[in-house]
């Protein structure tokens, strides 16, 4: 009896759903209908966006997932786009769904040299007098490290030597500055 009614409703509201659509797996957890303008929470629970939006507005200061009470917010839900959903204009639904979020993949060539920062820590520890020099060294170091991949299979020994020399040079400069500050 229930099965017959369910398929009838799914056919009326959702269009061409397969027989598996009637088992409740794609029902909104709030209105218990086939989810319209579907969004899914980070905890994996499915809702109609209008239903979830109403709930979030009801409990503004305590936004939790209706099913599992995990933290939930407008920015933390993902809209689901089925193949046929583009036929209907979701913007006609109020309130509009939050947009999908795309993150660009990280490009190796343009990564920030933050990883190398550990190497230059030594230079940073001279205190106020040596700080600009340490910073300078770190910039140089950064350049050297970045060039390494382009050197191919043999990572340049020369860069290493340069590094060491620079390191000594700036260590000397740093000590000099510290002594100068102490004497002044």
């Amino acid at each position: 009896m229930a099965g017959v009614e369910n398929t009838g409703e799914a056919g009326a509201t959702g269009g061409q759903e397969g027989p598996e659509a009637s088992d409740g797996a794609y029902e909104c957890n709030i209105c218990l209908d086939q989810a319209r303008d579907a969004v899914v929470s980070m905890c994996g629970h499915l809702f109609c966006w209008p239903c979830l939006h109403t709930w979030l507005e009801t409990r503004r200061n305590n936004q939790v997932c209706p099913v599992c009470k995990a933290a939930i917010s407008r920015d933390k839900v993902i809209p689901l786009y089925g193949r046929n959903s583009s036929n209907k204009d979701p913007r006609n639904q109020l309130p509009p769904r939050p947009p999908g979020q795309r993150t660009e993949p990280e490009n190796q060539g343009t990564t920030f040299g933050g990883v190398n920062f550990g190497d230059t820590n030594f230079h940073m520890s001279f205190g106020i007098g040596a700080f600009p020099l340490g910073f300078f060294a770190s910039t140089l170091n950064f350049g050297g490290e970045r060039l390494n991949p382009h050197a191919g299979l043999q990572p340049g020994q020369q860069f290493h030597a340069d590094d060491q020399m620079l390191s000594k040079l700036f260590l000397g400069l740093g000590i000099f500055c510290v002594i100068w500050i102490l004497l002044a």
Binding site: A2, C31, L32
Partner: peptide, 15 residues
């Protein structure tokens, strides 16, 4: 009130 209809149906068929 559609939701209440659904609940009533579920509660009578599968309480």
């Amino acid at each position: 009130m559609r939701r209440l209809q659904k609940e009533l149906l579920n509660l009578t068929t599968d309480p």
